[in-house]
Design a protein around this nucleic acid. Structure first.
Lengths: 111, 111
DNA sequence: ACCGTACGTGAACCAATGGGTATATACGCG
DNA sequence: CGCGTATATACCCATTGGTTCACGTACGGT
């Protein structure tokens, strides 16, 4: 049960996730895009997989990885408590957050 | 030049930040609220200070710490690239709520 | 059946870091 | 001035975590 923050503390892992944000990628693809050794990529992927940040599917000899957003959503949720420090000035964002704010509590239409 | 994520990887530091999210606090206050040794609190505060997460003001023998949101905003900004992975769900929820909201005449407050 | 490609994994190595203990500094008070 | 309170820091130690090297495995083409 590592914290998601601990996983994201590693720069190479963040790079991998950023890559996967735009598209699915095979290991070799990440290897050359990020210019890092394959074993390093594989190990980071292992950590990301074990913690639910990515999922893989087998395609011949390749493993194609795709992003799983759930852990990142948790990080986003943790940040919630601090948003009031900067969101006051950004009305559009505030409205967006307000809407996310109603998790089935039944108060859908504020204002 | 440490990544903000590396700073947030530490659970106690996150606890400190959460505390400071609600109010300014002195070191001793955090010490007892978090039930952790003072030297530990001080060390984590040092890291948080050096990385711009908190600022301190001197008040007699006390140091009162307050939150500085900028580094957290950067984290929030990094998450931006992933928001599309769950904003679709939010949109769906939004539409659902809108539909419940306006059963006959369409006043949808979209945008 | 081989051989190269594509990944994963285990072991050894090394640097960074958090916790604990002891100590240093700063301040207010009697 | 000496003492207690409040906080910071230096040092040591144990652990963690990332990198590299070497090897293992699975698959497809020829």
């Amino acid at each position: 049960m590592e914290s998601s923050f601990a996983i994201l503390a590693e720069p190479n892992r963040r790079a991998i996730l950023s890559l996967l944000a735009s598209a699915e990628r095979s290991v070799g693809e990440m290897e050359q895009r990020l210019r890092m050794p394959q074993t390093s990529v594989s190990k980071h992927l292992r950590v990301l997989r074990d913690n639910g940040f990515v999922e893989a599917r087998v395609e011949a000899q390749r493993r194609v990885y795709r992003l799983n957003p759930k852990p990142l959503q948790e990080v986003d949720a943790w940040l919630e408590q601090f948003r009031r420090f900067w969101s006051r000035h950004i009305d559009a964002l505030e409205k967006h957050l307000d809407r996310m704010d109603a998790p089935g509590a039944g108060k859908k239409a504020r204002k």
